[in-house]
Nucleic acid binder design. Structure first.
Length: 187
DNA sequence: AGTATGATTGCCT
DNA sequence: GGCAATCATACTG
């Protein structure tokens, strides 16, 4: 049976891998996570790298909450806070295979093609109607729902360098499901 | 297929 | 004042 329990109190790389195949819903709308990226305080590409600031405070709070930030002044991006409190680590949700609330997501995105609904962090934000009010919210309570458990289904994992960053760009902390048509980009 | 560009805003140096 | 964990569109070859 599905569960809302998920162990976020581990390092971002492990959590990022285990999230592949997990379903995330917000108010019943969303899908299966097929692409993630790990970020960590020791990592020059992470928002938490320089220590805690008002913007990244959620990353330093308890694991298992959302960290939401504005990207390029335009998009809202969703992260899951992980590791131990105070460590400044999180996992960026980069792409979903849309499964629930397709019509709502199509309307929010202004597009029909399921393939492009949630293929990228900004698109996920728009499809799930994310904004700043979701920052720091616990992931095991409404409006969030996490379904499934790591290892329940066999997932062939792809690994590669993260996207859109300039520092630590060679660190292979991007993860995805092999063969998925819903990835933001090819690995 | 690949490369370029504008949109847009809050945070940090 | 500069920049950013992006996206859609409009080019080029």
């Amino acid at each position: 049976m599905p569960t809302n329990r998920f162990d976020f109190s581990r390092c971002s790389e492990v959590v990022a891998r285990e999230l592949i195949g997990i379903t995330v819903l917000i108010n019943g709308v969303g899908g299966r996570i097929v692409e993630t990226e790990a970020y960590d305080q020791q990592d020059a590409a992470s928002h938490s790298f320089g220590g805690q600031t008002p913007r990244n405070a959620a990353m330093f709070g308890p694991p298992g909450r959302a960290y939401v930030y504005r990207s390029y002044g335009i998009h809202w991006c969703l992260n899951f806070v992980c590791r131990d409190q105070g460590h400044g680590a999180g996992v960026l949700i980069r792409a979903l295979e849309p499964t629930a609330g397709m019509a709502v997501m199509q309307s929010r995105r202004g597009l029909d093609n399921p393939r492009l609904l949630c293929a990228g962090p900004g698109r996920v934000g728009q499809a799930l109607n994310i904004d700043a009010s979701f920052n720091d919210l616990p992931l095991d309570e409404p409006p969030f729902q996490l379904l499934g458990r790591p290892g329940t289904e066999p997932v062939v994992m792809l690994t590669g360098p993260r996207i859109g960053i300039s520092k630590a760009a060679e660190t292979p902390w991007r993860f995805g499901e092999a063969g998925s048509r819903f990835l933001s980009r090819r690995f």
